[in-house]
């Protein structure tokens, strides 16, 4: 029980930290989650993290919140999900409540602007690092299909500005279609192979019989001895 409480607290604190230092959108927090939960604590693996991102992206709500809930649930069930959710919403709740009372001064402050501008460059570097690490998996394996899919998704979203929901839905359709095509091709191959072994089987039969007779002859000889 004490160990559980410890885990819940660690989950809460991790998402609290991530949420408090994340400027600019859900993908930034997802990159930081990958760094913390996958690389540092090794609570979940790289593939699971990408699945979590995909599901968070296509569920209602903010990506960062959805991803926090899913990570919490994967690691420590329902109460884990509540801990990560609380950790994710608490910092913005406190910070925004405070800022609301003197927001014009904040948004026009020159020094705040400088600080935020410097931070953007750091965020860009963190995301690039995460993408590099995650893509290294299939680039090293020379998985051309995955590389092409990644490039295609990038172009569709960045240059053509196609809705990300549509892109993910397309990927789901493509994956399912690929699975059933591969299955059909495999079934056809197996059927052909089965036919071939059937015809081979007919030719094999006499040899088997010959062997049998050989064995019986041998055993006959042994009997004579």
């Amino acid at each position: 029980m004490e160990k559980n409480a410890n885990l819940y607290f660690k989950l809460f604190l991790s998402t609290l930290q991530l949420s408090a230092f994340t400027f600019g959108g859900g993908y930034v927090i997802v990159s930081l989650m990958q760094k913390k939960f996958v690389e540092k604590y090794k609570w979940i693996n790289k593939d699971e993290m990408l699945d979590i991102v995909a599901i968070s992206q296509s569920s209602p709500g903010a990506i960062a919140i959805n991803a926090s809930i899913m990570v919490g649930y994967r690691i420590a069930g329902f109460w884990g999900a509540l801990c990560t959710l609380l950790g994710a919403i608490l910092p913005p709740l406190v910070i925004i409540s405070a800022i609301t009372f003197f927001y014009t001064a904040f948004s026009q402050n020159l020094y705040v602007g400088y600080f935020l501008k410097g931070m953007q460059a750091g965020i860009a570097a963190v995301i690039v690092d995460v993408i590099y690490k995650m893509a290294a998996g299939f680039v090293k394996k020379k998985d051309i299909l995955s590389m092409a899919l990644m490039a295609a998704a990038f172009c569709l979203s960045y240059f053509l500005e196609i809705n990300v929901i549509l892109i993910i839905a397309g990927a789901i359709a493509l994956g399912t279609a690929y699975h059933f095509c591969a299955k059909a091709v495999k079934a056809k191959k197996q059927k052909r192979q089965a036919e071939r072994t059937d015809s081979n089987g007919a030719q094999d039969l006499p040899i088997d019989k010959k062997n049998e007779t050989d064995i019986s002859r041998l055993s006959d000889k042994e009997n004579k001895r």
Partner: peptide
């Protein structure tokens, strides 16, 4: 499940591509 497995395998690089879009946007802004 094998269907889900193949589908997830297709979605993963696509998701990574979308994260790359976010990176490109932030780099441009910075």
């Amino acid at each position: 499940l094998s269907v889900i497995k193949t589908t997830l395998k297709t979605i993963r690089p696509v998701t990574l591509g979308l994260i790359a879009v976010a990176a490109a946007t932030i780099i441009k802004l910075a």
